[in-house]
Design a protein around this nucleic acid. Structure first.
Length: 843
DNA sequence: ACCTAAGGCGCG
DNA sequence: AAAGCGCGCCTTAGGT
């Protein structure tokens, strides 16, 4: 294969470019190669060379080339095009004989490894023969989004450290493998003298990956222990591993260590909630006194928080680890070394992040008083799960499927016979035949979801107008016609199938939820979720499944998102408290984000409205519609709610027109929309100055801080692109609000939990939905629990804990019932003077 | 039998 | 001049 072919037509990119198939440049033989997307422009080359120089690599020694050989910005390159170019790249590699290749961007990654998904593969080492390939993001992305620059440089430094085999800042420790009875006794002695442990387990469970499976097992346990005399000991005990001497009685071995492990005062782990949950399942009640992953995330929410990226970038250590999917097939020594290094590097990340937090006292406070406590509570919340009404689930599933089938039957009346073809006359007018699949022979099946069939059927066969298309296809062709709800709404009058399709989409969506619940409901009628304390940039919790790639053996991961359960009582009514002894309570902060906006912005009217116990959504509705405040309908209030949140966080009139239609089928002209927006800000004169303040702050400091001290770093504010900067500015407005509101919810959870424990109240926290907490409470304890919940949420000791005087009243609304979906809201006096007899009649 | 991207939509 | 923010999951389509 030749290195270049100026007449190449192997892919579409050659069309219209000046020079077809540009070769790379650099020394004839080079140890280092950089593979980008397209042949570099001189500006990119200059900045790339400057960055390489910064990490100690002389650009003159580097061979630069690209995945695509034609510089063509008019056509979007696809993986097919990259593949067409690959022979040229392979020939170049053959000739230059590099030892290390930096693959930049998804294109570089794909061309060199065949993998796709640069964010997943970046900063790993992928061996290809004798060549080490290290993927990272595209330098263009780092230029466009300065927010990416930090991690780009980190990757470059990592690349350089591989090239120069620089000695790591910390050396590999001596590791003790506990494989004999004698060493087991030694370990017990060590644990008795330990005052700090960094621990980690390797697990096995298939196919769902959780600790409740019949085959769930702990493969090995490792600890890095700091003894009272200051000595550091790193050890690993193999448990369920096939070569482990403890394999047959691993549970027993673990239980012997339990009291010693539990007694260690400082227990450190990276994503420790996972390890602690598993340990609890097998009888060891570990806690997490310092979670390094959470510390890393709190210190910099934009930085990769995994142990491997943290350790490699902080200490320059070589990437360690193995393919954890086949843990049981790996030699035991490899598993043990891997496990040991995890705890050893976690210990070192702990040492660094502890100091970094100490240097920022407000962050440290949040870490100690909120993050760490919430983390430990969530261990049991996740283990407990949410009771699900199996009977209702079965009924609702069957009912929804039946309704969907009914709609399908009606839709079929408009569907022609399979393989339908237009008459020559119709074909001339542009009508096409029933779409096919594969090699173009097999007709696709009828599918009323947004599919090739459905698109053909409504936009071609039935002739409905295409109002919107998706993104252009990678080959440059037009995107698929949109079938989203808003578009179908516009077409409602055009054809009677549209209303049916809308109804069908609703039912179909419902079935997806029912499917998920049916899949994971366990023998005890519970479903479970995983909460992430480091899943969002604002400090909110996120909810869902655990990350599949981090759990060995798992094919499917058990877990649902508790935060996106539809509000439809048919779905929320599935969840509740187990009868007959428990009742379900939902406690919601009322309009907490807007109250926080009032507090932060100091807008006088907002403050006044809340201080006098009024309803802001109602007030805006009245103002916008020009009606007295007591004549605002429930529907109007709902509309005003969407308006409030939108405008408060920087929505423009254009988007307002769009959401007003999409959510409420309201049509506004441009002039009307602009007038409404203007009127909104006239009502609340403090808001625009607050926006301006946040913009100034982020431009000055590249970051904003919430009232409690949570930091949001926004390096994108330095972008050369106005759109990117604007985004960062709106985030600067929203972040402190969302952060504070979320911290209030987490703090409530912690304090309520502490009260329940202290007073012996039989109750379990089921989860949190951003501004709400869910509980199941023993019916005999409901009367005592409710006042605790409400008063705790409304009177958080922010002054004592964080030095904040919150001068906007906070209100929590409580709902009580057997199920989430049909819990009824209680008046204040009902919360504080609960009459169980009356309530039980209702239930 | 996997994988990724894009569209769409559930929630606050 | 123009600009809501924050998430996770499911489905389809087109790959390997």
């Amino acid at each position: 294969m030749t290195i270049r072919n100026p007449d190449c037509t192997a892919c579409k990119l050659h069309r219209g470019v000046e020079e077809v198939c540009e070769i790379g440049f650099g020394p004839k033989k080079a140890d280092i190669m950089v593979v980008g997307k397209m042949p570099n422009s001189s500006t990119y080359r200059a900045s790339l060379e400057a960055d390489l120089l910064e990490v100690g690599i002389d650009p003159a020694t580097v061979y630069f080339t690209s995945a695509l050989k034609c510089r063509n910005f008019d056509l979007n390159a696809s993986n097919v095009d990259i593949k067409a170019c690959r022979p040229y790249l392979d020939a170049e590699i053959e000739k230059v004989q590099p030892k290390w290749i930096l693959a930049t961007g998804n294109e570089g990654l794909f061309a060199l490894t065949g993998h796709s998904g640069i964010m997943k593969y970046r900063s790993r080492v992928i061996e290809r023969g004798d060549i080490s390939i290290i993927p990272t993001i595209s330098p263009a992305a780092a230029l466009r989004n300065p927010g990416q620059r930090g991690s780009w440089l980190t990757d470059l430094r990592f690349f350089a450290s591989q090239v120069f085999e620089k000695s790591a800042k910390i050396a590999k420790p001596e590791m003790v493998y506990i494989t004999t009875k004698k060493r087991f006794l030694w370990l017990k002695k060590i644990l008795a003298k330990t005052e700090l442990i960094s621990y980690d387990i390797e697990t096995y469970s298939t196919p769902m990956g959780d600790e409740f499976a019949d085959n769930a097992a702990i493969v090995s346990l490792s600890g890095t222990c700091v003894l009272r005399n200051g000595k550091v000991v790193v050890w690993c005990i193999p448990l369920f591993h096939p070569q482990s001497p403890f394999r047959s009685n691993w549970r027993q071995a673990l239980r012997q260590l339990a009291p010693l492990l539990e007694a260690i005062p400082k227990q450190i782990a990276h994503n420790g909630k996972y390890d602690a949950r598993w340990m609890r399942q097998f009888g060891v009640r570990m806690v997490v006194t310092f979670d390094t992953m959470l510390a890393c995330h709190l210190l910099d929410e934009n930085r990769a928080k995994g142990l491997k990226p943290q350790a490699t970038s902080r200490f320059g250590v070589a990437p360690w680890g193995v393919d954890t999917r086949n843990l049981l097939d790996m030699p035991i020594e490899e598993v043990m070394e891997y496990n040991c290094l995890d705890t050893f590097y976690t210990y070192h990340v702990y040492l660094e992040t502890k100091e970094e937090l100490k240097a920022q006292p407000r962050l440290l406070r949040i870490f100690i008083l909120i993050t760490t406590k919430a983390n430990n509570i969530l261990i049991d919340v996740e283990r407990h799960g949410v009771w699900t009404d199996r009977e209702r689930l079965q009924t609702q599933t069957a009912r929804t499927l039946a309704l969907r089938d009914e709609v399908d039957k009606q839709l079929m009346a408009w569907v022609p016979e399979v393989g339908w073809e237009p008459s020559p006359k119709k074909a001339k007018k542009g009508k096409t035949a029933w779409p096919t699949q594969g090699k173009g022979i097999k007709p696709v099946e009828v599918n009323f979801n947004p599919s090739n069939f459905a698109r053909w059927w409504i936009f071609d066969y039935l002739g409905l107008p295409i109002l919107e298309r998706g993104k252009d296809k990678p080959d440059g062709g037009p995107g698929d016609p949109s079938m989203k709800e808003a578009v179908l709404m516009e077409l409602k009058e055009s054809h009677e199938v549209v209303a049916l399709l809308l109804e069908r989409a609703r039912l179909q969506k419902m079935t997806t939820f029912f499917n998920a619940y049916n899949n994971i409901i366990d023998e005890a009628d519970r479903i479970r979720t995983t909460f992430k304390l480091a899943g969002t940039v604002t400090g909110r919790l996120s909810s869902g499944k655990a990350d599949a790639d981090k759990i060995p053996g798992a094919r499917d991961i058990r877990g649902v998102n508790l935060q996106q359960v539809p509000r439809d009582p048919a779905v929320r009514g599935l969840f509740g408290a187990p009868p007959p002894k428990y009742l379900f309570i939902e406690a919601d902060f009322s309009q907490v984000e807007l109250r926080v906006v009032a507090f932060i912005s100091r807008d006088p009217r907002m403050m006044y409205l809340y201080q006098t116990g009024q309803d802001i959504h109602r007030a805006t509705a009245a103002e916008t519609l020009g009606v007295p405040i007591d004549q605002v309908s429930k529907d109007d209030r709902k509309k005003a709610k969407a308006v409030n949140f939108g405008f408060v966080y920087g929505m423009g009139w254009k988007k307002f027109i769009q959401t007003a239609f999409e959510k409420y089928e309201l049509h506004f002209t441009e002039a009307e929309a602009m007038a409404i927006r203007k009127a909104f800000f006239r009502q609340f004169p403090g808001l625009l100055p607050w926006h301006a303040r946040q913009r100034r702050l982020v431009n000055e400091h590249m970051r904003v801080v919430s009232p409690l001290g949570r930091v949001r770093h926004l390096p994108d504010i330095l972008s050369g692109e106005q759109g990117v900067r604007g985004e960062a500015e709106r985030q600067a407005i929203n972040s402190p609000v969302q952060s504070f509101a979320s911290d209030m919810t987490q703090l409530s959870m912690i304090l309520i939990h502490e009260h329940f424990e202290k007073l012996g109240i039989k109750a379990h926290i089921l989860g949190s939905v951003h501004d709400a907490l869910l509980f199941e409470v023993h019916h005999k304890h409901v009367a005592r629990a409710m006042p605790i919940i409400k008063s705790t949420m409304e009177n958080l000791p922010l002054k004592r804990m964080f030095g904040i005087t919150l001068d906007v009243p906070i209100v929590a609304d409580l709902k009580l019932g057997t199920h989430w979906g049909d819990a009824t809201e209680l008046e204040e006096h009902e919360v504080y003077n609960y009459n169980p007899k009356k309530a039980l009649v209702n239930a």
